[in-house]
Design a protein around this nucleic acid. Structure first.
Lengths: 257, 257
DNA sequence: TTATAAGTATTACATTGTGATACTTTTTAT
DNA sequence: ATAAAAAGTATCACAATGTAATACTTATAA
């Protein structure tokens, strides 16, 4: 609609991106009018944009239902992303090793604004679908990985984050109390690792260790998700934590402990 | 530059997508002029497009080097893709199980035009980076997965593909002889699985089984990559093939054998 | 230090995207 | 089965928006 920084801002492109962004978990396949409704763009605009995206291979079109779907190009972009993120090539072999060593699901998450995003996932146990695919974004404050990252920041900064950043309830036991989260992070800062239960899904325990950046603050974390039917916190601390920390340190650009 | 289907084609959007596509394995971080050079767009256009992509969160900009990089949004798109592809949720738990069962790297690939694209990867052994990340596109004819898929097509059609589709040499032993490939596919059609050596990387053996579609032709395959230092073809046939086939059939929408 | 290249900003112009409208097809309700 | 409503498709006149040239600034190389 309205342009931003004027003459250096290409409206038509921004609208096209808006169309891409309209697809998500809950809207994985949309008709023209659904896209129009979701983006707030008008019918004609969506018609042209979707058509262009289709011709350029960014949208699949079902000739039967006339619905649009993401195309393989979306995965190709992820491929390109991976080559651009120096942490990924560095981490991958170590993450694989770790996942085989302990036989549990290992993830690497990076901070993305006020959320964390899963960049690598190595599932070893069947679990719910969303936990097995990359690119998932979750409120940083609600995840062990996010808290582990924040814990490496100067206290004033992470406290500001705890005060401001978004929270969302995923299970009946997701912590929504910001004071409680602050206490948790203070503790993580001391211990050097984060542990959390029932935050994203019930009966799941998350264990996360920060990947230190060269400036002493983490921008990523290695995380391990296990079922509370097979593990308890003490077992995790004993069996998993040492190797998890070792892996996180080995990935850390400076290797700081 | 030139517009396509006229009035339903938004040039500015297409150019913006061109910019996104310019990033790849070899160009993971580019300056304005590099983007201009690679896309063939002129300086001013790239300036505006890159700026817009940046403002919309699709390009990261290093304030030091002024170079642009893919952003986390590229992974979010992959996340959306996964929800749109019905095969992935269906396959994921079975792929995980398989990878744990045999302890070797399991992939799922789909046909994407004349290439295959890796949609899921479950590495269990450290290997070269490109083999551990999703979204990689390879000539279908050069891969066990691609051939397994083609082998389910009517003979005339796959023979046409063998004649026309692109080939690329990855190792000194990549098969570039189309007759040889045709023989290989004929055999796969009989056997119901594909096996190949040294195609993408030396000392690697690939074993692939088609995931049958409802129309009797495959559009995806389950694939297993192993090192020839630890395996030979007979061992693979004995130990891995049965479970691989079982998995592929379990994923197949119709469950056809 | 100068020269060359790359990035940034501005502007005048007309190409290109806009959104209204009308037409066709599909879906839903009666 | 038929009508009504909704969704998809096509066309068009207008001017808003993207264009590319140019000039200015900042980096990099000679």
């Amino acid at each position: 609609m309205t342009r931003k920084t004027d003459t250096l801002y290409v409206n038509a492109l921004a609208k096209g991106l808006q169309v891409l962004r309209a697809f998500d978990e809950a809207n994985s396949e949309m008709s023209l009018s659904q896209i129009a409704a979701r983006t707030g763009l008008d019918k004609s605009a969506v018609q042209r944009l979707a058509n262009t995206l289709h011709l350029e291979g960014f949208l699949e079109k079902d000739s039967g239902t006339r619905r649009f779907r993401p195309s393989h190009a979306w995965l190709e972009l992820a491929y390109a992303y991976y080559w651009s993120d120096p942490l990924v090539p560095q981490a991958m072999p170590k993450l694989i090793e770790l996942s085989q060593q302990i036989g549990e699901t290992i993830n690497m998450a990076e901070l993305s604004g006020e959320h964390i995003i899963y960049v690598s996932r190595l599932p070893t146990k069947r679990s719910y679908f969303a936990a097995t695919i990359i690119g998932r974004k979750l409120p940083a404050l609600s995840t062990s990985a996010g808290r582990a990252i924040l814990s490496t920041w100067p206290e004033a900064e992470w406290r500001a984050a705890v005060a401001d950043w978004p929270l969302k309830s995923f299970t009946p036991r997701t912590t929504l109390d910001r004071d409680e989260i602050a206490d948790s992070i203070a503790r993580i800062a001391q211990d050097g690792y984060a542990i959390s239960c029932n935050q994203m899904i019930l009966n799941e325990i998350g264990l996360a260790a920060p990947i230190w950046g060269p400036d002493g603050r983490a921008r990523a974390a290695v995380q391990c998700s296990v079922s509370s039917y097979r593990w308890d916190e003490d077992m995790l601390r004993e069996k998993v934590l040492p190797v998890l920390l070792e892996t996180a340190n080995a990935i850390s650009p400076m290797g700081q402990g």
